[in-house]
């Protein structure tokens, strides 16, 4: 009798759920207003996906607008719209109302 071996369920690499672009779930879209953002990273702290990146690149830090010059020393929050589901937690929790929550247009 011939025995046929098959492979079980193979998940090619850890964290490959990134292939699911859950940004398509969004009905409302959070938009950071960098003129107001004090870069406190509370939005990054609470985003459940996580879909907010903490950008530490020196050029991005310097070249992103900020309400005050010294704030430009801090990392910049950036929303990754590939994965943001539009829950609005960031918008609700931002202490300086620097996030607008607008209807998604597709």
């Amino acid at each position: 009798m011939e025995i046929v071996y098959t492979r079980g369920g193979v998940i090619p690499y850890p964290g490959n759920s990134t292939e699911n672009k859950t940004g398509s779930w969004r009905v409302f879209k959070p938009v950071i207003n960098y003129e107001k953002c004090i870069r406190c990273m509370i939005c990054w702290q609470f985003c459940p996906e996580p879909a907010i990146l903490k950008i530490k690149d020196e050029d991005v830090k310097k070249n992103t607008p900020a309400p005050k010059e010294p704030i430009k020393r801090l990392p910049v929050p950036e929303i990754d719209y590939d994965y943001c589901k539009g829950c609005g937690i960031c918008y609700n929790e931002c202490p300086v109302n620097a996030i607008d929550f607008v209807k998604e247009e597709r």
Partner: peptide, 8 residues
């Protein structure tokens, strides 16, 4: 990683 199916 993001891309999971937990509710928004």
């Amino acid at each position: 990683a993001p891309g999971h199916g937990m509710c928004a």
